[in-house]
Computed example of a mutant assay.
Amino acid sequence: MPFPQSFLDELVARSDIVDVVGSYVQLTRKGANLFGLCPFHSEKTGSFSVSPDKQIYYCFGCKRGGGVINFIMEEENLSFPDAVRFLAKRAGMEVPEEDGDREAGRRRQRLLDLNR
């Protein structure tokens, strides 16, 4: 089910990347960014950077990066829809279930079945 863009925008706005990543990684401020040990690979010096201004993360060691939804996808090993639901629950938001989306999904599935 595709999520409405307005819902995703609000979810990302309510899910501060520093708070989300900070619950998995101990972060320390160095200038404008925060740094810590990367949760995706083992390392001794912190090459994992979080930018509060841009709301993104990046690891200079393993080259992984992205936004808050991508972080949850990688850290919790979830698909995009499951990561959105995970963050929505964390932010206290209700995931929209629209009838139009269900109907469009049914129509699409029927067309796929007909083509087979």
Results as ranks from 00 to 15, higher is better:
residue 1 M to K: 11
residue 2 P to D: 12
residue 2 P to Y: 09
residue 3 F to V: 05
residue 5 Q to I: 08
residue 5 Q to G: 07
residue 6 S to T: 14
residue 9 D to G: 05
residue 9 D to P: 02
residue 9 D to Q: 10
residue 9 D to A: 13
residue 11 L to D: 02
residue 11 L to H: 00
residue 13 A to N: 07
residue 14 R to C: 03
residue 14 R to D: 00
residue 14 R to N: 07
residue 15 S to P: 02
residue 15 S to D: 01
residue 15 S to W: 03
residue 16 D to C: 05
residue 16 D to E: 09
residue 17 I to S: 00
residue 21 V to S: 00
residue 23 S to W: 05
residue 23 S to R: 12
residue 24 Y to I: 10
residue 24 Y to R: 13
residue 25 V to M: 01
residue 25 V to L: 04
residue 25 V to H: 01
residue 27 L to F: 02
residue 28 T to D: 07
residue 34 L to A: 06
residue 34 L to S: 05
residue 34 L to Q: 08
residue 35 F to T: 10
residue 36 G to K: 03
residue 38 C to N: 01
residue 38 C to M: 04
residue 40 F to A: 02
residue 41 H to S: 10
residue 43 E to A: 08
residue 44 K to T: 15
residue 44 K to D: 14
residue 46 G to H: 04
residue 46 G to W: 03
residue 46 G to N: 06
residue 47 S to F: 10
residue 48 F to M: 03
residue 49 S to Y: 00
residue 50 V to L: 04
residue 50 V to C: 07
residue 51 S to L: 07
residue 51 S to Q: 08
residue 51 S to G: 11
residue 52 P to L: 02
residue 53 D to I: 09
residue 56 I to Y: 08
residue 60 F to A: 12
residue 65 G to F: 07
residue 68 V to Y: 07
residue 68 V to R: 02
residue 69 I to N: 04
residue 72 I to S: 00
residue 74 E to G: 00
residue 74 E to F: 08
residue 76 E to L: 09
residue 77 N to W: 10
residue 78 L to T: 06
residue 78 L to H: 06
residue 82 D to F: 08
residue 84 V to D: 00
residue 87 L to T: 01
residue 88 A to S: 13
residue 89 K to W: 09
residue 90 R to T: 08
residue 92 G to N: 10
residue 93 M to A: 06
residue 93 M to N: 02
residue 93 M to S: 05
residue 94 E to R: 12
residue 94 E to T: 15
residue 95 V to K: 04
residue 95 V to C: 02
residue 95 V to W: 04
residue 101 D to N: 15
residue 108 R to T: 12
residue 109 Q to S: 14
residue 110 R to T: 13
residue 111 L to H: 11
residue 112 L to F: 13
residue 113 D to S: 13
residue 114 L to G: 14
residue 114 L to W: 13
residue 115 N to W: 14
residue 116 R to K: 15
